[in-house]
Amino acid sequence: MNQLLRRLPPLQRTVMAFNLDDCSPSETAEALGLPAANVRQNLRRARINLARMLEEDEGGTQ
């Protein structure tokens, strides 16, 4: 999983790390000084990108 996280853009990687540490988007937004909507959007994009990467990796190993 760490290898996949490293492939994310920096902000997506950061918000995903906060999420994995059980921080809410509001808590993450406060810590980063960003609007909560930005954090939620980047978290959504990170999840989409991670899912895409997992699919690509699975497709390449079969």
Rank of each mutant, 00 (worst) to 15 (best):
Asn2Asp: 14
Leu4Met: 14
Leu4Ile: 09
Arg7Asn: 13
Arg7Trp: 13
Leu8Ala: 04
Pro9Ala: 09
Leu11Phe: 08
Arg13Ile: 02
Val15Leu: 00
Val15Glu: 00
Met16Gly: 02
Phe18Ala: 05
Asn19Asp: 14
Asn19Thr: 12
Leu20Ser: 12
Asp21Gly: 14
Asp22Gln: 05
Asp22Trp: 00
Cys23Gly: 07
Ser24Met: 06
Ser26Lys: 12
Ser26Ile: 09
Glu27Cys: 10
Glu27Pro: 12
Glu27Gly: 12
Thr28Asn: 05
Thr28His: 06
Thr28Gly: 04
Thr28Phe: 09
Ala29Asp: 05
Glu30Asn: 06
Leu32Ala: 12
Gly33Thr: 03
Gly33Leu: 05
Leu34Gln: 07
Leu34Pro: 00
Ala36Val: 01
Ala36Cys: 00
Ala37Gly: 01
Ala37Thr: 08
Ala37Met: 07
Asn38Ser: 07
Val39Gly: 05
Arg40Gln: 08
Arg40Ser: 09
Gln41Asn: 09
Asn42Val: 06
Arg44Glu: 11
Arg44Ser: 11
Arg44Met: 08
Arg45Ile: 07
Arg45Leu: 13
Ala46Lys: 00
Ala46Leu: 02
Arg47Leu: 11
Arg47Asp: 14
Ile48Tyr: 12
Ile48Leu: 13
Asn49Arg: 15
Glu55Tyr: 11
Glu55Arg: 15
Glu55Phe: 11
Glu55Cys: 04
Glu56Trp: 12
Glu56Gln: 14
Asp57Lys: 15
Asp57Cys: 13
Asp57Arg: 15
Glu58Trp: 07
Glu58Gln: 02
Gly59Phe: 07
Gly59Ile: 08
Gly59Val: 09
Gly60Ser: 00
Gly60Ile: 01
Gly60Asn: 00
Gly60Ala: 01
Thr61Met: 15
Thr61Cys: 11
Gln62Cys: 14
